[in-house]
Design a protein around this nucleic acid. Structure first.
Length: 589
RNA sequence: GGCCCCGUAGCUCAGGGGAUAGAGCGGCCGCCUCCUAAGCGGCAGGUCGAUGGUUCGAAUCCAUCCGGGGUCACCA
């Protein structure tokens, strides 16, 4: 395990280590057997505050393997832990929990740590620099991004930021599906707009893309090619128009992503895999493992498709890695299925040296998960784990009714429609207020509302209040920079309400690690809501109890300590919002 | 029919094997001569879909059902 300056931030991990050290000493002294499995020993914040600041299940987990009653084991461990000056009290409770109450100095130290670490407070080395590739969005380059892509874009971007914060070496990547039939459809659609640009009547036949967004493409084609493509057979212009149009579509998509403040590190092209031997090489790698064969699939169990006919295909033996059936990599006409270049693409990611892969897919691609995991497992000899996050639907609401409209496309709501109405930051936060695998309601009225109904506002309001206090403090001559506040006499923070605030701040580094382990960026949004709630509560305590007001007239020392706590809260809000891609509010308007 | 996801308070949802299951909204009752009441506090509200199993301990893990959604070979 690498030791770094950040490791001390997770207080729970620190005290867990203390417990493990004491257990090791007990083993050394022959009080418990040596070599016990400590993996399930946990140190957690108890649900009930009456149970102290931290609780460990060590005695219960180890009772059986140690051959001792849990409470007896707990008593022995408690006696040892009680000697640590950071621990104010230890009690054995329930079936054998060890509840720790920590010295106030520990919580005061948390405030100081947060102030000194600033935006880095909570940063972790959990990832230990491992290379992870997060592939997300990967929308077809056939039109503007629509609302269905927004959630995936936000989740992927926030997850990437979270993993970077937790110590991974992150690459954000977009896979351009520019190799299939749909880009030919795009080309034909754009060609009609090109004819239109020349004053001809476009023939937007069934199956072509009707969107207005192709009109500028037609005009650009006219500017580039003049009349030279008119009245020419498709074979003459298809490839050129396709490349021209997909390039323009990707420009549009990049601009859409930019409007959402999403930045990719790498764009990978499906088309670029063709003709380079990469697909063949990837399949050859599988063939060498005996995983490619010619065969005939059984019809799907239960419901057989109307046009089912037995057909010999080139198949990938994905069942060897947990899939339900083997999967075709070649169509009957000998061309690749979509799966084949995707295998090659993931092989490429493995070859580029990533230690972990993450794909963010729409929930409608759920059926694709097992085969993709099988492919990566086979290609990496099970070295590289692939986690696939499926993003459920977003239901848009406005004026109490489902919202469907698009200025440009008629049928779907574009990313721009959403960002124009809600703003990028509000959109980003709202998209993270649900786990990725449950549907999310996005209500245009609610996201713009300034009330606690709206979690974005609620967190931002806390941030604004914090800045308001800092401004006020500065006005009366209190130094509010982080270094000065960190040097304040924090032993003056003794009220339980203040300690509780510091406890919540102390949970942040732990939360980062939990969220990163599970690839669950939504946890950050929920935590920030709780943190804001605690802060609003503390703020209002000042109404009843003037000793809890942050600015104590005529007592700069006490004021500084309280403002240090306020600022530390702001530090965490800033760090958390940064992961979500949201700028903390300085004031409400 | 196979596979995947979901099922927790009236509603919308949190809850990495822990103790008496939480939050917001809605309902009821309170709090502004006081740092922003765009806020806060309290009360009421639950067989965690069902049944078995694993475990000292299950909303959480496993199995089988029941509901709801998604998906199912030459689309991507």
């Amino acid at each position: 395990m690498r030791q770094t300056g950040f490791d001390h931030m997770n207080l729970f991990a620190e005290f867990r280590s203390l417990v493990l050290a004491e257990l090791a000493a007990m083993a050394e002294a022959g009080l418990i057997p040596a070599g016990l499995d400590m993996a399930n020993v946990a140190m957690e914040p108890p649900r009930d505050a009456g149970h102290g600041d931290m609780a460990t299940n060590a005695a219960m987990v180890l009772a059986k393997p140690a051959g001792q009653p849990p409470r007896a084991l707990a008593e022995r461990l408690a006696a040892r832990l009680a000697k640590d000056p950071r621990i104010a009290a230890v009690e054995v409770a329930g079936p054998g929990f060890l509840n720790l109450r920590l010295a106030a100095s520990v919580w005061q130290g948390v405030v100081r740590t947060a102030l000194l670490a600033g935006r880095d407070y909570g940063r972790s080395n959990l990832g230990a620099g491992r290379k992870v590739n997060v592939e997300f969005v990967s929308a077809n380059p056939t039109g503007p991004m629509h609302v269905g892509h927004v959630r995936g874009a936000v989740v992927g971007d926030a997850l990437a930021a979270l993993l970077a914060f937790a110590g991974w070496d992150v690459t954000r990547e977009y896979y351009i599906n520019d190799g299939g039939a749909q880009v030919n459809v795009l080309a034909r659609s754009a060609y009609e707009r090109y004819r239109e640009a020349h004053g001809l009547e476009p023939e937007i036949r069934e199956g072509l893309y009707p969107g207005d967004y192709l009109i500028p493409v037609g005009e650009a084609l006219k500017a580039r090619y003049g009349t030279s493509l008119l009245n020419q057979p498709e074979a003459v212009w298809l490839a050129d128009v396709r490349d021209f149009a997909t390039d323009m579509m990707m420009e549009m998509i990049r601009a859409d992503l930019a409007a959402l403040n999403v930045r990719m590190d790498v764009y990978s092209s499906e088309k670029a895999l063709y003709g380079t031997g990469k697909i063949e090489a990837a399949l050859e790698a599988l063939r060498a493992k005996g995983l490619i064969y010619e065969g005939i699939l059984e019809p799907p169990k239960g419901k057989t498709p109307e046009d089912w006919e037995p057909r010999e295909q080139t198949l990938f033996r994905s069942t060897a890695y947990g899939d339900d059936v083997d999967r075709p990599v070649k169509k009957s006409d000998g061309s690749w299925t979509y799966f084949a270049p995707d295998i090659a693409y993931h092989y490429d990611k493995v070859c580029r040296g990533f230690d972990e892969l993450i794909d963010i897919f729409g929930a409608d691609h759920g059926g694709y998960v097992k085969r993709m995991k099988a492919a990566v497992a086979a290609l990496s000899d099970e070295r590289v784990p692939l986690d696939i996050k499926l993003i459920q639907l977003v239901k848009l609401w406005k004026n109490g009714a489902p919202f469907k409209m698009s200025k440009r496309a008629g049928t779907f709501v574009t990313l721009r429609d959403v960002v124009d109405q809600a703003g990028a930051e509000v959109t980003r936060f709202m998209m993270l207020t649900r786990k990725n695998d449950v549907a999310l309601d996005f209500d245009f009225d609610k996201v713009l509302e300034q009330s606690k109904d709206n979690p974005v506002f609620y967190v931002q309001y806390a941030s604004a209040r914090i800045h308001s206090i800092l401004r006020k403090a500065a006005e009366i001559g209190i130094a509010v920079d982080d270094v000065a506040l960190a040097a304040a006499d924090l032993t003056l923070l003794t009220h339980q309400a203040e300690i509780d605030m510091a406890r919540k701040i102390a949970e942040w580094p732990r939360l980062v690690e939990i969220a990163a382990k599970g690839n669950e960026p939504h946890r950050v949004a929920f935590y920030l809501y709780e943190l804001a709630s605690d802060f609003h509560g503390l703020w209002n305590r000042g109404s009843d109890d003037t000793s809890l007001r942050f600015i104590q007239e005529g007592n700069p020392a006490v004021s500084s300590s309280k403002i240090a706590l306020v600022r530390a809260t702001g530090v965490v809000i800033s760090a958390g919002l940064a992961i979500l891609g949201v700028t903390p509010a300085v004031e409400m308007r």
